[in-house]
Structures are given as C-alpha cells and as structure tokens.
Computed example of a mutant assay.
Amino acid sequence: MDLLTSLTPLDGGWSGETFLAEVAGERSVVRIFAGPRHAEHAAEIQEVLLRLVRGLVPVPAVKEVRRADADAEAPGLLVTELLDGVRGDVLLPALDAQGQGVVGGRLGTIAATLAGMPHVAAGMFVDATLRVRPFAPDLEEWVAQHEDLLDWSDADLAGLRAVAAHAQDRLDEVGRVSLVHGDLNLKNVLVDADTLEITGVVDWEFAHAGSPYADLGNLLRFDREPAYADAVLRGWTQLRGDDPATARERARSADLVALVDLAARKDANPVAARAHDRLLVIARSRDLHATDQSRLLTSE
C-alpha cells in the first residue's frame, strides 16, 4: 500500500494517531503508534489480536503491519479495512428504549465472548506471542499507588480504600484470567443504524489479559440507562451463566482499576475528568454502584 497518500484524522479518539487513508479509490484506517506510551511491538500485538478474535467478534481485517524501527525513527503502523457503521456513542442517544436494548444485548454478548477466551496469567501483552508483563498490585495496592495523584481528603481516601477492599474480595471469587479489550465502550464500537448489528469493535490499544469482568464493567461505567444496561447484563449472562446481580457487582469491582487510573489523570481528557467525578461519588458513598453527583458537594 502506498502510504504517501494524504491522511485524514478520524473522529472519536484522544490520541490523534488514527487516520483515514484512500489509495486508488479504496479507503483504509491507518493507526500510527507514535510516542513512548506504546509498547515496542504495539502494531504487531494489535495485528495478532485482530486475527485471533476475527470470526468471534466483529473486527476489521488487517491489510498491513509495519514494526517500529527505532534506528530509523519510524513508528509502528497498522493498516486495516474501514468498516461501515455509526459510532455507538453517537447512535445510542438517538435510539428508543427498544433500540438501546438491542444494542446493549449485543454488546453484552461481545463482552461475554471475550471473557470466554482464557489466558494463563494477567498482564499487559509485550510482543506478538501475547506473552505478558504481569500485573503486580491488587486493588488495594493499586489505590495506594495513586493516592498522591488523586489529591483527596483523608475521608475520601478512606472511603476509596474501603471500596477497594470490598471489590478485591469480589474479584478473588473469580479465579481466572481472560482476554480483555480494555476500552470496550460505545465510542469504540460501530453499529449499523438500520439493523443495529455491531459491525466493528475497534481500538485494541489497551488490550491485555485480566479480569473476565473488566470489559463488562467498562460497558456499564457511564451508560446506565435501564434499557441499555439491563440488556448488556442479559447478553452477558445468557452466554456466561452468571446471576445478573453478581455479574454487575464483579463488573464494577473490575472496573475500579480503570476508574482509579483515569481519575489520577483527570486533566488529560473529558473521559478522565468524568471518571474522577464518578470515583469520588463511589468513595464518598462507599458504594460501587453510586451515581449521585450531590455527594461531590460534601465529604462524608
């Protein structure tokens, strides 16, 4: 593929590294893995993941991959097909309750499918063999590592520690590890506006091996309209067999890892700022499921 063609930034991401390219009338998506935050083999890792899940989860076909070359100061690059569909975060607010339920159910099934793909140990993928760099801390240690960055009152931090201890107890009940997309939310899914079929799950940058409930927690983090959220849980439980209340509790427990990480970077982007506010509500109420924004006004 001739990558000297013009590149147009795609909407929806914060990285500014995803582009639309057109060569000889054929459009593709080009992801450039620039910057130190990316693993050395980020492009190859995403290629392997897309090939691994294709046929189980709707993902774009890989057209080309180029490994990063530090000597040539060339970043890794991944070229995939351009999928049809509307971003889920754009489409869902325009749907009625029935439509939201259809989309939610299908996303719950996707999360459950990924949760059924086992891995030996939790960690971030480091190369194309999907070897992992293990995660060291549990939730309580994770919170301790981020307390200074949160810059909260002693009372709020005490509430967060209590929630983290409870959440870790719930996660300890699971006892297995699976493939995790790591950013499975409406912004990273494409939906056919007419049929409401999920046409693509994109942006696998944060994929890792971890809690089977992590992607479910991401789907339920902010989008909690009953028609949607209840359907997500139905889609999950029909495939995984969990009780919905148990699945929700474990999902919110697993998602606490991401909420803490995002909250500690609240000024990075609007999603991080929203995560910070949600985590503060959770800490002050000592309730994983809390959404009451009035709790931001006073520390308990």
Rank of each mutant, 00 (worst) to 15 (best):
V90L: 10
A61D: 15
P58R: 09
R106A: 09
L82S: 11
A112E: 04
A68T: 09
E64M: 14
G105T: 04
G76R: 04
L107H: 03
G105I: 04
R66M: 12
G101M: 01
T80W: 08
A121Y: 01
H119Q: 11
V90H: 12
V86H: 07
L49T: 02
G104K: 04
A115K: 09
A122K: 01
L83F: 11
L82M: 13
L114M: 10
P75C: 11
V90P: 00
D96P: 04
V59Q: 04
V65A: 13
L83K: 13
G116A: 15
A112I: 12
R87W: 10
G101V: 04
L107P: 02
P93G: 03
D89W: 05
A121F: 04
A115M: 14
G99E: 05
H119E: 02
L82K: 14
V65Y: 07
R66Q: 13
V79M: 11
D71Y: 03
L78K: 05
P118E: 10
V90N: 06
P93L: 00
K63R: 15
G85L: 12
V79C: 07
V79I: 15
V79G: 04
R106Q: 09
L82R: 15
Q98R: 13
Q100V: 00
P118Y: 08
V102F: 01
R106G: 03
G104H: 00
P58K: 12
M117K: 11
V102R: 05
A111C: 10
L114W: 06
G99C: 04
A68M: 10
T109H: 03
E81N: 10
R66N: 08
A97P: 00
G76F: 03
R54D: 13
V120D: 14
G116P: 12
A111V: 13
A68F: 09
G116D: 14
A72N: 05
E47G: 00
V53Y: 00
L92I: 06
G88Y: 08
L49F: 02
G123N: 08
A115Q: 12
P93R: 01
R87G: 13
D96H: 01
L92G: 04
V62E: 02
D84M: 11
L52V: 09
A122Q: 08
T80L: 10
R87I: 09
P60K: 14
T113K: 04
A70R: 15
M117S: 08
G76T: 10
L95M: 07
V59A: 05
V53F: 02
A74L: 14
G76E: 06
A97M: 01
A111Q: 09
M117I: 15
G55Y: 10
G104S: 05
D84E: 15
V102Q: 06
G101F: 00
V65M: 12
L49Q: 00
I110G: 01
E64W: 14
G104V: 01
G101D: 02
Q100N: 07
P58M: 12
L83R: 15
L92P: 08
A61M: 13
P58H: 12
A70Y: 07
G55V: 09
P58L: 13
D89V: 11
A74G: 01
V57Y: 07
V62H: 08
D84W: 10
